[in-house]
Design a protein around this nucleic acid. Structure first.
Length: 424
RNA sequence: GGAGAGAUGGCAGAGUGGUCGAAUGCGGCGGUCUUGAAAACCGUUGUACCGCGAGGUACCGGGGGUUCGAAUCCCUCUCUCUCCGCCA
């Protein structure tokens, strides 16, 4: 959510910058400014009416204490009209405030100046590509066939237990998952991230804080009985740790990492790239989150990108880093780098991480602030997060890229975590 | 699932109709003292919004009501805690 004062003070800038997100904000912004001006005027009137009311009430109290009942009762008569006015002011004010808010949440975050112009994923800028695309044998199998061949993942069994998109990992498949999680968490700890084990369900306030509610309500599993939502990413509970808090500037940045299962309904995406592990309703992910000083957040974004790059590089997967264009970047993000690994048998790039700086967009909603030494007024902090990493597509690429006639090799960095170096 | 208690500032905890944005203690910050520190003492210490400013308004879990006036009374919702039962 963009800050209201900022919109009020920089209307042209907002409209101009959002063009790069292919978003025409001119009408919304001008409506916001009109309404907000009315709102401020109304508050001035309401406040002075209230001030007068408070004053009279105090006087009445005084008169009663002095035993001047008649004067007190006379004073009461003056309040009726005031009271009515205040009621009307408040009702109008609340109505306008709600409208302003409704418009305000329609505005996406402003893109960083480095965000390329573009319509969709084809316009993303490949800023780096590393590793050889493996030349695969004719007989190379896609990961879902490898998973069946070596009894690693049972998709049909998942259908029996739950439904499509809830695979069952077993044997070395399960152990590989566990190894990856541990590897990612170990790397994050080494990089100074404090590990969190968050709840996998969150309340409405948390869903709202990170922006899943109300916009993306349909993407989350909702436990209606208790009005809780299964988390679509650990970003939600972890970032909400910092909801409604004022931090000390000297403690920034806060760095957290969390492994969690993630649940996504993926409503409306049936039939598209859903084969095997490409798109699931439940998957595992290690997330990294930082709460940063606004002056430092872009340096920190680079640091997080470097961290994720280290992970894919250590796993020996061919990867590329994309700077998302205005048409593909998310609503809440100012700048996003996606990581894709090449899945050799499917012969396509799979997104395995998305690292974003949200600047103050989430913090505004979260009321996440920090206080500079000696400065009275708290400032809005910046939030950043990234996948480090999402497991399923990493597993898909590992299986496909490391397949040999003898079996599937395990990358060296993982062997201490798996305890085996080959799946055969 | 049954029974009960509670929700007040960073924390603890008073306040049951007016002078309460709210006592007191702890913590934090500044100062005195000290070679330095501790102790002691003095002062200070919430957030948001409106206003050029002086200043004003709102907030004692959320919402509604009574009243000239509500942290305080009434209704309602949510959450937390304790005990019992069941259970990982």
């Amino acid at each position: 959510m963009l800050n209201l004062k900022f919109i009020q003070d920089n209307p042209e800038l907002v409209v101009e910058k959002l063009k790069r997100k292919n978003f025409d904000a001119s009408e919304i912004v001008s409506n916001i400014i009109d309404l907000n001006t009315k709102k401020n005027k109304l508050q001035g009137e309401a406040d002075s009416a209230k001030a007068e009311m408070n004053k009279i009430s105090k006087e009445i109290g005084m008169l009663f204490r002095e035993g001047k009942h008649e004067e007190a009762n006379a004073a009461k008569e003056r309040t009726a009209e005031l009271k009515e006015n205040i009621k009307n002011f408040d009702a109008d004010f609340a109505a306008i405030e709600e409208k302003v808010y409704e418009l305000q949440v329609l505005l996406p975050n402003l893109p960083h100046e480095s965000v390329p112009v573009g319509k969709g994923e084809d316009d993303n800028e490949v800023i780096k590509q590393v590793g050889e695309i493996p030349a695969m044998d004719e007989k190379a199998l896609p990961h879902w066939e490898l998973a069946a061949k070596y009894n690693l993942i049972d998709f049909e069994l998942g259908v029996k237990l739950t439904g499509a998109g809830f695979p069952v990992y077993r044997g070395k498949g399960a152990q590989l998952q566990r190894a990856l999680i541990n590897f990612f968490l170990a790397e994050a700890s080494k990089a100074g991230y404090e590990e969190i084990q968050p709840p996998l369900a969150v309340n409405e306030a948390s869903g709202f804080g990170t922006g899943q509610l109300p916009d993306k309500e349909g993407q989350m599993y909702h436990i209606t009985e208790d009005n809780l939502y299964l988390i679509p990413t650990a970003e939600v509970p972890v970032t909400n740790i910092y909801r409604d808090v004022i931090l000390d500037a000297k403690d920034l940045p806060y760095k957290n990492t969390a492994y969690s299962a993630c649940f996504r309904r993926e409503a409306g995406s049936y039939g598209k790239d859903v084969r095997g592990l490409n798109r699931l309703h439940q998957f595992d992910k290690v997330e990294i989150v930082q709460i940063a000083h606004p002056d430092k957040s872009y340096g920190i974004l680079d640091e997080m990108v470097a961290h994720v790059e280290g992970l894919v590089a250590k796993l020996g997967l061919p990867y590329r880093i994309l700077r998302l264009c205005g048409g593909d970047i998310s609503f809440a993000s100012a700048l996003t780098f996606d990581f894709e690994v090449f899945s050799a048998a499917q012969e396509k790039w799979l997104e395995v991480s998305s690292v974003s700086n949200f600047e103050s967009f989430q913090s505004n909603r979260l009321k996440l602030r920090f206080r500079e030494e000696g400065v009275k007024k708290p400032q809005i902090a910046h939030t950043l997060n990234g996948s480090a990493l999402a497991l399923p597509r990493i597993v898909a690429a590992l299986l496909e890229n490391y397949q040999t006639p003898e079996g599937i090799k395990i990358p060296e960095v993982l062997v201490p975590f798996t305890g085996f170096d080959m799946i055969s």
